[in-house]
Design a protein around this nucleic acid. Structure first.
Length: 566
RNA sequence: UGCCUCAUGGUGUAAUGGUAACACAGCAGAUUCUGAAUCUGUUAUUCAAGGUUCGAAUCCUUGUGAGGCAACCA
């Protein structure tokens, strides 16, 4: 069980407070039953993770008198696919949650839901309308003026029943008839102006096949499905606030329901430098703006996983952001903090030079090779050590050398000294350039007395400590440097009403480095393993593209860089 | 010209009528064989105006701002 989700936050959010009050009042027989109800029309993203952590987290916190259902809200066959069903289950599991026996589909209830609809018709609370789409829209009124009831509302119960049964039999075309609730055409809440309950859809459903040609609307199916599963707390996002009265109307007016759930709403997650709506994510995928749903730059669960973000980091993040009704915009830095916090604990260290520059240690014997012992984790001796080879020629990061150093730069510079981490100190004696004036090689000398961290005699300890890779032993590898997908904090808002958010795509969001020089032990990096290339970033051995002996690394997140250039 | 919801440092949250706090970010220092991590310190907050109260971030009124609502989508 994921610990981060099992313990409730120190202070209770408004949802947990309400649940505590329900429990204190002895409601629901002391049970807490929640549900995570995705529509299988896309991949899950970090916003869904917030909901998953809430609903499944609640079940864990209130165990054993609690459970959380996974229910697919599959009431619109035109948008749903099994591919999405499968990915959603995989993502929820990967996040560390388990629905156990409680896997449901709204489509499981189609027959019962149909029966409830006949019940409402019989009670005079629902009617078959034959207005066209346009007529219905026109008669609904506007935000400031009431609507007018359609003539169909006056039909007899018998006629409505007959019509509804014929709808089910397939006697009508799509759009010809619709079942509506009879509530209040003058309600200030548009959702109560005789909302549609069933529409005709001659579409193939991924589970029920062609058994049905009428499908329930979300507003109708959701509360009743909740009730059928004896859900106690139906938690959703803020945009469903105005649907609550309808939710309650159905629970109150349908007889024979095993449960009496209630709905409460919380603010969805917004993150800087990304987009979160399924529509926009779908666009990124369909227009090949990214490399599929699991592109490491995507805010999808599968994308984040492939980038190397851990489930623990996501859970911890969800805990950090809290739960309110405030429409917030969370800085991506908060997510990155959770990621680094977890990766720092679990990642073994290694050397990787992304933009190599060759260094020749001129006073080091030509054919000598020696191995230095390097700890795999600085804060965890149990992680053991590894042997890192060194020879006369090595690669260092080109960023770690400056011909004309700025103030405060304490890495390698002409005539300056740095320590090769876990090896010895070198001094830069000479810069070799090509005809165009580019630096191609550095000639350095090493100091034998500085092995194993010893201070050079008579001199001050060099401030600079850099990573390095032996040229003769280096593993050439492909490393992808991922960055934020967009150049602006709020791509949707900045794009405006009908603007195109794609224009804010960050052209540098994926830089592929093909000639990175990695320490040889990385050759054995298992696909799906997490690493910290010291002083650079956290990396993830891509599970799809890595081949035996030839790992491909994705940069998950950079290390914090405390050095500000003056 | 409607209805609903919301408003606390730069960001996210806490304080449930009684000293406005925590995390992130920032800054400074200590430490460090990662300019990381760790540790210490630090900058910065109640949308506005009235009212109730001994006392208001909290309750009331009005205003302002933000988000949402007129699918046979979810």
């Amino acid at each position: 069980m994921p610990e981060a989700a099992a313990t409730p936050p120190a202070s209770l959010d408004f949802i947990r407070e309400m649940i505590a009050a329900d429990l204190a009042a002895g409601r629901n027989g002391g049970q807490v039953v929640t549900r995570f109800p995705p529509e299988p029309n896309g991949y899950l993203h970090i916003g869904h993770a917030k909901s998953i952590c809430l609903n499944f987290g609640l079940a864990q916190e209130h165990a054993p008198n609690a459970r959380c259902h996974l229910r697919f809200d599959d009431t619109n066959p035109t948008k749903e696919e099994v591919e999405y069903v499968d990915s959603i289950m995989a993502d929820v599991k990967w996040l560390g949650f388990d629905w156990g026996e409680h896997l449901f589909y709204a489509s499981d209830y189609f027959e019962k839901l149909y029966g409830f609809a006949e019940q409402l018709i019989t009670k005079g609370l629902a009617y078959v309308d034959d207005q066209t789409h346009e007529e219905m829209r026109a008669s609904r009124g506007t935000l400031t003026s009431p609507g007018t009831r359609s003539a169909g509302a006056d039909r007899s119960v018998e006629e409505n029943l007959d019509l509804f049964r014929r709808m089910r039999k397939g006697e009508f075309k799509e759009g010809e008839k619709v079942l509506r609730a009879k509530i209040d055409m003058a309600s200030p809440n548009m959702n109560l102006r005789d909302p549609a309950l069933y529409r005709i859809l001659h579409a193939h459903h991924h589970r029920t096949g062609d058994a049905w040609c009428i499908y329930p609307m979300y507003d109708y199916a959701h509360p009743l499905s909740d009730a059928l599963e004896s859900i106690t707390h139906s938690l959703c996002t803020l945009e469903f606030e105005h649907h609550r009265p309808l939710y309650e109307w159905l629970i109150a007016n349908v007889d024979g329901l095993p449960g009496a759930p209630y709905q409460r709403e919380f603010a969805r997650l917004n993150l800087t430098y990304t987009v979160m709506s399924k529509r926009k994510l779908l666009r990124l995928v369909k227009d090949d703006l990214v490399n599929g749903w699991d592109d490491p730059r995507m805010p999808t669960i599968s994308g984040m996983r492939r980038r190397g973000i851990t489930a623990a980091a996501i859970r911890s993040f969800c805990k950090t952001i809290g739960l309110t009704k405030f429409n917030s915009l969370t800085e991506i830095a908060l997510l990155e903090h959770s990621i680094r916090e977890d990766l720092n604990k679990i990642s073994h260290r290694a050397y990787g030079v992304l933009r190599p520059i060759k260094v020749v240690i001129t006073n080091y014997p030509e054919d000598q090779v020696e191995f230095f012992d390097a700890p795999n984790h600085p804060e965890d001796a149990a992680a053991g050590t590894r042997q890192v080879p060194l020879c006369r020629e090595i690669y260092i990061e080109s960023d770690d050398f400056m011909e004309f150093p700025s103030d405060g730069f304490h890495r390698l510079k002409p005539g300056g000294e740095v320590r090769l981490k876990f090896a010895f100190c070198i001094i830069c004696q000479e810069i070799i350039k090509d005809d165009a004036g580019n630096i191609v090689e550095l000639r350095c000398t090493y100091d034998e007395t500085t092995r194993h961290g010893k201070k050079p005699e008579g001199r001050t300890k060099p401030k600079g400590i850099i990573h390095w890779v032996s040229a003769r032993h280096a593993l050439d590898a492909t490393v992808r440097l991922y960055d934020r997908l967009f150049t602006v904090e709020t791509p949707d808002a900045d794009a405006g009403e009908d603007g195109d958010f794609a224009k804010f795509l960050n052209p540098a969001s994926c830089e592929v480095v093909t000639n990175a020089k990695l320490e040889p032990s990385l050759k054995e990096a298992a696909p799906g393993s997490h690493w910290q290339f010291e002083r650079v970033a956290y990396f993830y051995a891509d599970p799809m593209d890595s081949k035996p002996g030839a790992p491909v690394f994705n940069r998950t997140v950079t290390l914090k860089d405390g050095w500000v250039k003056k």
